[in-house]
Design a protein around this nucleic acid. Sequence first.
DNA 1: CGGAGAATTGACCAGGATCAATTGAAGTGG
DNA 2: CCACTTCAATTGATCCTGGTCAATTCTCCG
Lengths: 252, 252
Amino acid sequence: MATLSTPAPTPAPTPTSPPGAVACSNCNLRELCLPMGFTPDEFARLDALVATRLTLKRGETLFRSGDPFRALYAVRTGFFKTRIGSEDGRDQVTGFQMAGELLGLDGISSDQHNCDAVALEHSQVCVIPFSQLETLSRGFPELQRQFHKIMSREIVRDHGVMMLLGSMRAEERLAAFLLNLSHRLKARGFSPSALLLRMSREEIGTYLGLTLETVSRCFSRFQEDGILEVRQRQVSIVDQTTLERLVSGASA
Amino acid sequence: MATLSTPAPTPAPTPTSPPGAVACSNCNLRELCLPMGFTPDEFARLDALVATRLTLKRGETLFRSGDPFRALYAVRTGFFKTRIGSEDGRDQVTGFQMAGELLGLDGISSDQHNCDAVALEHSQVCVIPFSQLETLSRGFPELQRQFHKIMSREIVRDHGVMMLLGSMRAEERLAAFLLNLSHRLKARGFSPSALLLRMSREEIGTYLGLTLETVSRCFSRFQEDGILEVRQRQVSIVDQTTLERLVSGASA
DNA sequence: CGGAGAATTGACCAGGATCAATTGAAGTGG
DNA sequence: CCACTTCAATTGATCCTGGTCAATTCTCCG
């Protein structure tokens, strides 16, 4: 089940390891990535940890299920999806990741990645060698705690998706999805109402446990009801209140 | 939406902190709980960490969403479910936990628990004070690594549930659920084919994103097809191969 | 033995899936 | 610069899985 066209044979992502420029200590994402009050010395140690950067073009894969696990990746710019696939070809999108979010946590369990991470647009990630992260965090309680919180947050997020998939109807799912995107964009200083979707209807559907047709129909209905304005992947949230009421089950 | 009867007002679980007896070092679950080759000295430090034990009766709650998070809990004996609830009353069972499995990982993210953990039968858990676990693991790389693997495994498990909820049909979901139970029982030395379900049809349904009627009907159909033998909560797997084929999407 | 909750089963309905056609947008090469 | 290709999105018609409502039946306890 192809999800994103990859016309060229898609070689490995270009390893742009030129350091020099941006470091954690003056990265504008550091509040999202590792929101703690670190000292300058601690930042220096972080900067040493995160030395490499990777650039990926739209459609390229950061890692695949089965690849040996060596590092986590922090999204610097761009947008990703992660997906797992079953034997019989069906696949499930397990998440969409934007700037400041971490990729690869699932690989720790078995020393190999358990999902595919695909760039949905031109993207850049910071490479965090995992064994070094573990070493550093042993002498650095705040970092340790922060890392544990990030893993736990991923578990909580997954439970939210389970609730969405297990007990919400189509419209509620899409509403929850849009509001979630909106919140995350707002937290990054973008407009919470003007969304530019980076993924196709099919990818949304595969995430929400719906078909692409159902997703499209829901978009249309929301537009008719004056909740959204939809022009392809350009979506404006017109009536956030109603959207929120939808998620809570009130069929408003 | 009541899931388990709790006739008595259910006070806090009885805190049986009598140490002395069983310690991690000679716990027969240690392969499941912390499967590493620890030295005697390392075991001694673990034993000091896990000093308290709690006993819960069927229907009692170990922790609730919103409770302050202070410890993780390792199931020693018994069976639990975890659930999250939405504002409008719908709840979602996020997992069933048996001996050797950890409860409470979701609480790390926000310093308070994000789900309810309910004992489905008389159960005993080991209390693992979290800040002590973090402290200990800073001087104890194998423990640190093991803990990270456990968290990551939970993420991988959740992704599996997302795939189940997002892309499987009712029969496939129930088949996957039963096979999962079977594997976990086998890993604990129990029969992988004779299952005694600790949860109601409704709880299974709430976990699998189905109604209790659908769960019941699937059980009946599996019995008609000679895949299972079902007598209430006493379920025998007769034809494991067909069950496995069901999960892979081949409609047998 | 009687009552309460759990499970089964049936009848009916509806939310989404499926199949299929059409429109729309974006990139390609003449 | 425009026809052509290709893929994404929309929309319609129909079907089917699983939800809903309701009636028994079965267990387990008090």
